[in-house]
Amino acid sequence: MPHVLILGGTTEGRELAGVLGGRVRVTSSLAGRVAAPRLPVGEVRVGGFGGAEGMAAWVREHEVDVVVDATHPFAERISFNAAGAAAATGVPLLALRRPGWAAGAGDDWREAGSLAEAAEAVAGFERVFLTTGRQGLAAFAHVGGAHFLVRAVDAPEPPFPPRMDVLLERGPFTLDGEREIIARHRIDVVVTKDSGGAATAPKLTAAREAGIPVVVVRRPPVPEGVEAAATVEEAAAWVQRVAGVSG
């Protein structure tokens, strides 16, 4: 059976492993940054590869035929490592990227090119709902005057904002729940990465209803020359075609 390596850790990665299971040999690779990740079907490895060269060596050693980068849209380093490994080994690579969000009528979105720019954008606000995860909190550590409500799956480690409460929660989130958080904590600005998808989108609707702005960090581009798919179905069809597997 063809061997497919899925660089996962996302809902799409788990779903793709489930769709392909039984048709190909699937190994899902997880970064290991979450203490108790939701595991996909099939084989699972946890931890880094040691850069593009390390990934290329792993691909060769384990006779991988196809690689799918289904990591988080902001996992820029591993995406570029995957592109480098694919170039070095000649193994086909696909990037599975769910579409980003789009502002609608009544939204007050303020784009930022990085977490550092997002930290500058919240200067002057008093109650910040920070939903960018525990990675990257150092960018907000210098922001004085504001009180941050940080939502993450696992407890963050310093450096982080000096005035901070933490919500340890894992999505998907509901609209009623996001409304309640914004009201109870008197949030006056939301900060998010443009992750896309439905699981964490309700906060955007809740912010619009509350009449508060959202600082949206733009996602990095897919590495140049890498083919991309927007859905699990598209990715599964691509894998089956490239690996020579019937549907």
Rank of each mutant, 00 (worst) to 15 (best):
R60I: 11
V59T: 12
R60A: 10
W101H: 06
A70W: 05
I78A: 04
L93A: 06
D107E: 10
F80D: 13
T89P: 02
A95D: 06
P92K: 04
L94G: 02
G100L: 08
P99H: 08
G84N: 03
R77K: 14
A85G: 05
A75Q: 03
A103R: 10
R98C: 01
A85W: 00
V91R: 00
W101G: 02
A103P: 13
A87M: 11
V91S: 00
A103M: 12
G84M: 02
G51L: 05
N81S: 13
G84F: 01
A83L: 05
S79M: 11
G106L: 07
A70Y: 04
H72Y: 08
E61N: 14
T89D: 03
H62G: 11
G104M: 10
V68R: 02
R110Q: 15
A85S: 06
A103C: 12
D69H: 10
E76Q: 14
I78C: 03
G106Y: 08
W58L: 14
A85M: 03
H72N: 09
G54F: 08
A56W: 01
V68G: 01
P99A: 09
R77P: 00
A56Y: 02
W58R: 10
A102S: 14
D65N: 15
A83T: 00
T89N: 06
G104T: 06
S79C: 08
V66N: 02
G104L: 09
R97H: 11
G50T: 09
V59P: 00
A95L: 07
G90A: 09
R98K: 12
W109E: 11
R77T: 13
G54Q: 07
A86Q: 00
A56M: 10
F80Y: 15
W109D: 12
T71Q: 07
P99G: 10
D69R: 07
I78R: 01
G100W: 04
W101I: 02
F74D: 01
G104W: 05
R77Y: 08
E76Y: 07
G106W: 07
E61H: 15
H72M: 09
A83Q: 04
R98V: 00
A95M: 08
W58T: 10
I78L: 13
A56P: 03
W109R: 09
G51E: 03
E61F: 11
A82R: 01
